[in-house]
């Protein structure tokens, strides 16, 4: 027991501040849960419109994560390992979706995929319309959430000591094999955490998606719509149900990712 373990007034003050911050986060959420009656809650979870919307939100955000991960994860490896010109610029570009207003991101994405653009026409020719379509939702979600995956994966790869990759090459492995058998498994925890972050960010996206596709309605848009049309009491149960679904999903994904890296 030294001087260090004495209770200091200053530290008590810090604990008090911390408690206030925690309360600030927890209180509105708890308030919302307590304000939602049992009856409203069960009514909402049996509402077809709501469950369909939650389902849509979950699968579009999962699709955005998986589809774009296929290119983003190898790209993250390049960013972690290779030196090239304008690397700083490339890293800055990747962060742009985080720092711009999401409604602006939505406008940008819409301009990119609407029917009279090249991508829009290409999609049309193979029967995919992006606007007011789940495909558009996937693109909008991916646009705003990709940086989370790329950054997490890049940091994960950078933390893998290069000697393991060198040793594998030295043992005769091709660069592709080194990537799949050494780099990827060793960075897996960070990549999984990036997956979860990207999935979470996509799922909770409102601004960009509402501009690209008001319909079909993802849950954040539905909450907004019910609030605008019918008021707080009507929007709240949907919000509560959606938050619960999100929390269950994250807990599950965290559990699975921890298990897979044990």
């Amino acid at each position: 027991m030294g001087v260090y373990n004495r209770v200091s007034i200053f530290h008590l003050f810090l604990w008090l501040l911390g408690a206030l911050v925690l309360l600030f986060i927890a209180a509105p959420l708890l308030g919302m849960f307590f304000a939602t009656g049992k009856h409203e809650f069960f009514h909402t979870i049996s509402d077809k419109e709501v469950t369909r919307s939650i389902g849509l939100t979950l699968w579009t955000s999962m699709a955005a994560t998986l589809i774009f991960a296929a290119a983003a994860v190898p790209f993250a490896w390049l960013l972690a390992r290779k030196k090239f010109r304008f690397k700083g610029l490339v890293n800055a570009i990747i962060d742009i979706p985080i720092v711009i207003p999401h409604s602006a991101a939505g406008i940008a994405v819409l301009g990119f995929i609407s029917r009279d653009t090249m991508l829009g026409r290409l999609g049309e020719s193979i029967g995919i319309s992006f606007v007011s379509n789940p495909a558009g939702i996937v693109v909008a979600m991916a646009f705003v959430s990709l940086p989370f995956l790329i950054n997490a994966a890049r940091d994960g790869f950078a933390a893998v000591p290069e000697k393991y990759e060198k040793a594998a090459l030295n043992l005769g492995a091709s660069p592709a094999r080194v990537f799949f058998t050494i780099s990827l498994p060793l960075a897996w925890r960070s990549i999984m955490s990036g997956f979860i972050m990207m999935f979470a960010r996509g799922m909770s996206e409102f601004g960009a998606v509402v501009i690209v596709a008001y319909h079909p309605m993802i849950t954040p848009v539905m909450i907004y719509e019910r609030f605008g049309a019918f008021g707080l009491a009507y929007a709240r149960p949907v919000a509560v149900v959606f938050i619960l679904v999100c929390l269950v999903f994250f807990a599950l994904l965290r559990y699975l990712s921890n298990k897979s890296t044990e």
Binding site: Y164, K166, A167, N170, L171, A173, I182
Partner: peptide, 16 residues
């Protein structure tokens, strides 16, 4: 590297 048959033992072993 992967096509040379020169096996290396690294200073800090690099066992996967």
């Amino acid at each position: 590297v992967q096509k040379r048959n020169a096996g290396m033992v690294f200073h800090d072993s690099a066992v996967f």
